[in-house]
């Protein structure tokens, strides 16, 4: 479903702030794979997701989604293949617009936007039923402005928007990092439910090693802009946090230095 080959990206080249963010990162995902992504700060996890999403062009390498080479496509044209949820709950939704309007915008992702009504009556009924399943009390607030929702509600809504039109690939960039532990768990639960229900291919960046192990059927670790560890199938099921830390030391030759990941 995703073929990312030898991706390279350097930010601020030729200045004192030069930063090699991706240094030959390669990843293949089969249809239906749910891949969790871990790694220390600056390892290139978010950069990798942004490269796939087309936030900027890569310096080298190629990206293919479901057989289509998207390397040369700008962000808005790749959007039809991708569902995305961001770390900041503010990023994924339009705060000044209503809940149903946000969903209707997402329902038209990848389609040409015409002079037909932006939202229909049937859609409103459909959204009502879908939101009811989330059990967050949003189904009766369809016409409320999204800006009035809590962070967790916004992330759940963004998830719904990302999966409303089945994406070829769902990109989750630390989408529970800004939430309190209880809400984060709920949003993760919804994430897992939606991925299983629609049989989605997904990538989830997380700083929580336990989540990375518990969720999904594939796990990669990134370091210095490369994928240094690739675990799937049975091997992933038996994985422990200690295993991961040891493996990291073996592969990178350094100690895992991110406190939050060790403590969580």
């Amino acid at each position: 479903m995703l073929k990312a080959f030898n991706l390279k990206k350097t930010f601020n080249p030729g200045t004192i702030n030069e930063k090699v963010a991706l240094d030959g990162a390669t990843l293949n995902l089969a249809p239906g794979e749910f891949c969790t992504v871990i790694g220390g700060n600056g390892a290139g996890k978010s950069t990798f997701l942004n490269a796939v999403a087309g936030v900027w062009p890569v310096d080298g390498g190629s990206i293919t989604i479901d057989g289509v080479d998207v390397t040369g496509l700008p962000e808005y044209r790749r959007a039809k293949y991708l569902g995305r949820v961001f770390q900041d709950p503010m990023t994924g939704t339009a705060a000044n617009m209503q809940i149903d309007e946000n969903l209707a915008l997402a329902a038209r992702r990848g389609k040409s936007r015409t002079l037909r009504w932006g939202i229909t009556k049937e859609e409103r009924e459909k959204y009502h039923d879908m939101l009811k399943e989330l059990d967050l009390g949003l189904e009766d607030r369809l016409t409320a402005k999204v800006g009035l929702l809590s962070g967790g509600q916004r992330q759940a809504l963004t998830l719904m928007m990302a999966t409303l039109q089945k994406p070829k690939l769902l990109l989750l960039d630390e989408h529970t990092a800004a939430l309190d532990p209880k809400t984060a768990a709920k949003v993760l639960e919804i994430t897992d439910m939606l991925i299983k229900e629609h049989g989605l291919t997904a990538m989830m960046v997380t700083h929580n090693m336990r989540d990375a192990i518990n969720y999904g059927n594939r796990l990669i670790m990134m370091n210095e802009g490369r994928v240094i560890l690739n675990i799937s199938g049975e091997e992933k099921k038996g994985l422990t946090i200690e295993d991961l830390l040891h493996k990291f030391e073996d592969v990178s030759g350094t100690e895992f230095t991110n406190d939050t990941e060790i403590l969580s």
Partner: peptide
Amino acid sequence: YFGTEMGSAIRATGTNPSMSKAQGIN
């Protein structure tokens, strides 16, 4: 006009450009 798909896309662009791009809006 601002109730149509195109008009909604303009309103979305005004409120949240990054979200709009992620939803495929030019």
